[in-house]
């Protein structure tokens, strides 16, 4: 314990957005220092029952996704915003924490603030905490993702006025109404960027008889994905394995087809927003109606998603600046205040 404190002197305080798709780390006083996919490549010893070792983490591991030989497998240790594989998550965090510390003499032992989904259970939160501690953190704080996202977006969370934030992540989408530094109401659905990719894969297989991988689906989503029909139709050439012929084929997809593919997950997100608005106390709902809703998270980068929410709810919708990093940046701002104001503020656990 004492040794950890000594090592802590040589470590930066970190805010970690441990996401299903990407992990972002904000170092105190430095800003975003790491943005890598939450993917780990694991090598299995050829001997039966032999040890498993980490072959690659992050971007390098993501490049291996779907292209690995028998003794190598790529794992996404986070699922729906929570830990699916405890040991691998711990190793991944350890790798990232070491990566953001240039010093090699001491193993870093930073104070860490991890952003967790509102809808996560106590067991899931504990698992995240234990995992961070196992990765070498000296102290671990947890903060709800929507709170961190709202702070990172620059919303007036301390005012006696309702502010609605919708954080669309890789595994979950969280809708929260915040007032006076606390979450008044939240709605969490396990729909996010991963479900968008899955929907695209299913759509292509069903309508084109072609099987595409997750990286391809993600590329389609990023390049021509749209949440609202527009006159500007975009196209992309995609290659996949034709299911009937068994050989690779290329074909053209357009943005209207992807819009159709994404209807189901998008409806789930819009439904969560509507449900939150229905359940919000009237005074706060009036505040939200006056200024509008703020979208954050990687899902907010989907073209015209703000327009979709606006059309469905009838409220103004704005996308935060650099929505992908809002959660990590918000966590960083809270981390800077923990020393001065104590760890009980902003729903920090």
């Amino acid at each position: 314990m004492v040794f950890r404190r000594v090592r802590g002197l040589f470590s930066n305080d970190l805010s970690i957005d441990l996401g299903t798709a990407n992990t972002l780390i904000y170092a105190r006083g430095q800003g975003i220092v790491l943005n890598e996919p939450s993917v780990v490549a694991i090598q299995q010893d050829p001997n039966r029952g032999g040890p498993r070792t980490i072959a690659a983490v992050g971007m390098e591991a993501k490049r291996m996704l779907g292209r690995t030989p028998g003794n190598l497998s790529t794992i996404r240790p986070m699922k729906d915003g929570v830990i699916a594989d405890f040991t691998v998550t711990e190793k991944m965090l350890q790798h990232f924490i070491r990566k953001v510390h240039a010093r090699k003499f001491f193993n870093p032992s930073p104070r860490v603030l991890v952003c967790v989904p509102c809808g996560s259970t106590q067991v899931e939160r504990r698992a995240i905490k234990e995992s961070a501690l196992g990765a070498g953190a000296r102290e671990v704080y947890l903060i709800p993702e929507p709170m961190a996202a709202a702070i990172g977006a620059g919303m007036p969370v301390d005012e006696a006025r309702g502010s609605m934030v919708v954080d669309i992540g890789g595994g979950t989408s969280e809708v929260a109404v915040i007032s006076l530094n606390g979450i008044v109401y939240f709605e969490s659905v396990r729909i996010g960027g991963d479900r968008f990719d899955e929907a695209i894969i299913n759509y292509v297989r069903r309508n084109f008889g072609v099987l595409i991988g997750e990286p391809t689906a993600e590329r389609i989503k990023q390049e021509i994905g749209s949440a609202f029909p527009t006159s500007d139709v975009r196209e992309i050439e995609v290659k996949g394995r034709n299911l009937s012929e068994g050989v690779p084929r290329s074909f053209i997809l357009n943005s209207n087809e992807i819009l159709e593919a994404l209807q189901e997950p998008l409806a789930g997100i819009v439904g969560a927003v509507k449900k939150a608005l229905e359940s919000t106390p009237p005074e706060l709902a009036a505040d939200v109606a006056e200024r509008g809703i703020v979208l954050t998270g990687g899902g907010a980068l989907l073209r015209d998603i703000d327009r979709l929410v606006m059309e469905e709810t009838g409220l103004s919708v704005v996308i935060a600046e650099d929505p992908l990093t809002c959660v990590a940046r918000g966590g960083g701002r809270v981390l800077e205040l923990i020393d001065e104001r104590g760890a009980t503020t902003f729903s920090v656990e």
């Binding site: 977006a153 620059g154 007036p156 200024r291 703020v294 103004s316 919708v317 704005v318 935060a320």
Partner: peptide
């Protein structure tokens, strides 16, 4: 209009 996040969003729209 409100905090900068809203001003920026409104300007874009």
């Amino acid at each position: 209009v409100g905090p900068p996040v809203f001003v920026r969003g409104y300007l874009i729209r």
